[in-house]
Simulated scan of single mutants.
Amino acid sequence: MSEQVGLAHVFESHRKDLLAVAYRMLGSLSEAEDAVQEAWLRLSRTEAGSIVNLGGWLTTVVSRICLDMLRSRKSRREDAMDVHLTETFGSHEQVIDPEQEAILADTVGTALLVVLGNLKPAERITFVLHDVFAMPFHEIAPIIGKSEMATRQLASRARHRVRGGKAMPEVDHTLQRNVVQAFLAAAHAGDFDRLVAALDPDVVVRDDRQPGPSRVTRGAAALAKQISGRAQKAAQLALVNGTVGIIAAPRGRLLYVLRFTLRGGKIAEVDVISDPARINRLDLALLCD
């Protein structure tokens, strides 16, 4: 019994943070409390001594519970935010401490909750865990049941929608990878024809290493002539803001990043980014063979 009491005290020390996570995911304080309580029930039935990082374990469990709740809500075709915002700000004084409710509402903001309510469940979970709570993608991926690459793309789409853009289309990473890999192989081999074949005839290249007007190169032939046989040996495939690109990092020193836009299965735009400040704003991850 004393062990259970001690575990309860430890759990209570995490409750506030868990509630903050669940509230952002669900947009409803009552449901957030339900999710946190369910996490406690699962913890109480688990051999807690075997858990290395209790805070991380609890965050993962709460996130999975919230994901199930969001999917269930969607399957019932509920108008999630219209209903839950009304509940959150109007009818739970006896369930949630009013001061706590005011603090959470002020911290998150009704506008953000409305925007988050328009995201798909997995997008919302990914956005909250990564962009709000800085959880790395390799830890989020098993929570939502997707690969790390797919998780990064979910975050990118969610981020785009939260910032007011239109929903980003689903990305075929296999196609992207094949096209970019063919481009890189042809550049290494100095194969002019294969390079041109990978490029849109009107491809546009923006290179921040070049001065003035020479920053922009247009046309497949011009780009192929410029890079044929001159690709960095250290260049390799990477995810750049959730899409397949290239990084060049000889001896571990990052020189530049290539970010691609594909249209019709061809490379239509290339951004060569070498400015350290710009690189620091990119979300980069190596792609393994």
Rank of each mutant, 00 (worst) to 15 (best):
R253S: 12
R251H: 13
D289K: 09
A48W: 06
T243P: 02
M81W: 15
A35R: 05
Q232A: 11
R163P: 00
R278D: 08
R124I: 03
R73T: 13
H173T: 10
P121L: 06
L104M: 12
K166P: 02
D82N: 15
Q37K: 12
L19W: 00
E148K: 13
I246Y: 03
R76D: 01
V196P: 01
R230M: 01
R161W: 07
A235I: 00
L223D: 02
A248W: 01
V108C: 03
G56F: 06
R206L: 12
Q153P: 00
R45V: 10
L175T: 14
P169F: 08
C288N: 13
W57Q: 12
E87K: 15
M149Y: 06
D208R: 12
W40A: 07
I65H: 03
P211E: 03
H130E: 12
T88P: 03
D172H: 14
G6A: 09
N118H: 13
T217S: 11
Q153N: 14
R253P: 03
A222H: 12
V196N: 02
V272L: 13
A35Y: 03
V132W: 08
G165T: 06
R259F: 07
R263H: 11
L262A: 14
E12T: 10
T261H: 12
L26I: 04
A20G: 03
R194W: 02
V83A: 14
V21C: 07
A234H: 01
R218N: 10
A235P: 00
E87P: 08
R230C: 00
A224D: 03
T217M: 13
E123A: 00
A167L: 09
L7F: 08
D207S: 09
V114Q: 07
I103V: 15
K74M: 11
A32Q: 03
R177H: 10
I51M: 06
A231Q: 01
H9C: 04
H14A: 10
A185H: 09
E78G: 04
S13V: 05
H92W: 11
A249Q: 09
P211N: 08
N178F: 10
R215I: 02
A150V: 10
T110Q: 13
L58M: 12
F137D: 05
D17Q: 14
V108F: 01
E87T: 15
E12H: 11
A249V: 05
A185M: 03
A150M: 07
E99W: 10
D271A: 15
L282S: 05
V10Q: 15
G55R: 12
A238G: 06
L129T: 04
V114D: 02
N241D: 15
R15F: 07
